[in-house]
């Protein structure tokens, strides 16, 4: 569903993404981890078509995001860490707006919208302007609007920011359910517990490179460290840092 081949992105003389290759199949929950400035957000921005790569290709549901952007985006949903919402609209108006942009029929918007609104406990907020909502509630509205058209690929950047434990659980459950139904979920997070609990496979990025990819067990084997994912993460990113320091320039 997501195929990344030899992805490179330069910011001037800074190499933000350095030859990333990755394939995330249909129905997989993939979590990408990495320290700050590892290149996660840049990779995501290229996957969702916000940014052009310096070289390499990204295909979403078989469509190259650069040459066939509309086809790719019809099958994709993206929720950034601080999503944009129209402040003067109500959540329901916003949901209808995004549904219509994806050319959903009115009856489909009604059925899918009502179900998601109920699932995320948004009923009491439906007629309030979005500007009056808390950050967590806005985040829920953004996630509902992204799920409304039932995307084949769902990309989320720090989805749990601002969510209370109850709604974080709802998000986790619904993402797991959708992944089981065949939706590909690609999540970038700093919360290792989310990756550990939810992801089928985990990728670790460091200094623009994908330094490790695999299931929890595979990552444990690769790092030679047992125990919590945190230890594996710290071990792999530290190893890479030492390697890059020692490598000849």
């Amino acid at each position: 569903m997501i195929e990344i081949e030899n992805l490179v992105k330069n910011f001037g003389d800074v190499l933000a993404v350095n030859g990333v290759n990755l394939s995330v199949p249909k129905g997989e929950f993939f979590a990408i981890l990495g320290p700050n400035a590892a290149g996660k957000t840049t990779t995501i921005k290229i996957v969702v078509g916000l940014m052009k790569p310096t070289s390499g290709t990204v295909r979403v549901a078989g469509f190259d995001v650069q040459t066939h952007p509309l086809e790719a985006r019809r099958r994709l949903a993206y929720v950034p860490d601080f999503p944009f919402l129209y402040d003067k609209l109500t959540p329901w108006e916003f949901l209808r707006f995004t549904g219509q942009l994806f050319r959903m029929t009115e009856s489909h918007i009604q059925t899918a919208g009502r179900e998601l609104v109920s699932r995320f406990n948004l009923e009491s907020y439906l007629s309030k302007p979005i500007e009056a909502l808390s950050h967590g509630t806005r985040q829920r509205v953004a996630i509902v609007s992204a799920l409304l058209h039932n995307p084949e690929v769902f990309v989320l950047d720090e989805p749990m920011v601002g969510l209370d434990p109850h709604h974080a659980r709802i998000v986790k459950d619904i993402l797991r359910e959708r992944a089981n139904e065949g939706m590909t979920v690609f999540v970038s997070t700093h919360q290792l517990s989310v990756a550990e609990e939810m992801a089928d496979r985990i990728g670790i990025m460091h200094q623009g490179k994908l330094v490790a990819v695999g299931t929890r067990e595979q990552l444990h084997r690769q790092s030679g460290v047992s125990g919590a994912l945190e230890k594996v993460f710290l071990s792999l990113t530290a190893e890479e840092q030492i390697l890059s320091r020692n490598s000849p320039i």
Partner: peptide
């Protein structure tokens, strides 16, 4: 931010 939002939609 609206431009960034729209660029990720099928518009």
């Amino acid at each position: 931010r609206e431009t960034t939002f729209l660029l990720t939609l099928p518009v």
